[in-house]
Write a protein that binds this DNA or RNA. Structure first.
Lengths: 134, 134
DNA sequence: ATACTTGCAAAACATTTGCAGTGAG
DNA sequence: CTCACTGCAAATGTTTTGCAAGTAT
């Protein structure tokens, strides 16, 4: 990422303030909020560069690629995917010792853990019998 | 899945004998091997039904949706994805108590754990200086 | 016979790429 | 001024869907 344009600035801001992984689509929607003329292609391009650069990390949850800040202060964490609203949240803790799971002969370099279920917001909607759409 | 047709039989057979998660595309290719006229749409439809039904489970590894038999004798297991050969292997063990990771208010229904690294075959190829493609 | 299934092709999406115009340096 | 960046639209690739014909029950 060489030139500092308004759109890239906005895109970075979106991820910086999101606090959770965003799909390129979510990021585009949020960014267009501040810069309506911004096109999705630009978001895809910027996101890819930011990921290559290491500022963002890519992860795939529920069949969709998502990106989030590489370092948010805490180093390693995992994700919770809500199948109700399809949002992905960060989980601050790590599962711990997984090396015992690695088959002999294999070399583990990283691991990815995703919990699936309903987020608190969706749980509450369900409880109150509420029917609120996205 | 109500009627027992030749194509569904073939599709089930493909997953049953695969021994590892398959993408819809892989499944379609394998099934068309036994039933050339079979279309991808049918595979997608069948796979979705089988997954709803619980006979297959969906997982996302390395950016692609894959499906595999829900119960292969052992109940719960995880996956190891080799970034070298892009194959996914089963890991018989489960990480254990993950409920402590769930944020309060959230309800976890399942979890998915993927270890990334190199499988034994690829590790050996590397050691022996070998260079073999997929 | 009935109506669930299938194959095909079009549709719906998500992501990428080509291009000419725009703007950062 | 230059050339990287952007927006638009067309191109890709994947999964879904509409429909008429096929077939299990």
């Amino acid at each position: 990422m060489q030139r500092n344009t308004r759109q890239r600035e906005v895109i970075r801001e979106v991820f910086a303030s999101a606090g959770r992984p965003l799909t390129p689509q979510e990021a585009a929607a949020a960014a267009q909020d501040a810069l309506p003329s911004l096109g999705v292609a630009t978001v895809y391009r910027a996101v890819k560069e930011l990921a290559d650069e290491g500022w963002l990390v890519a992860l795939t949850v529920a069949g969709t690629m998502r990106f989030e800040l590489a370092s948010k202060g805490h180093d390693h964490h995992h994700h919770f995917h809500c199948h109700r609203c399809d949002r992905t949240f960060d989980i601050e803790a790590c599962a711990g010792d997984l090396s015992r799971l690695v088959p002999s002969g294999f070399v583990m370099e990283s691991h990815e853990l995703t919990l699936n279920g309903a987020c608190s917001a969706c749980v509450q909607k369900t409880r109150s019998g509420g029917r609120r759409a996205r």
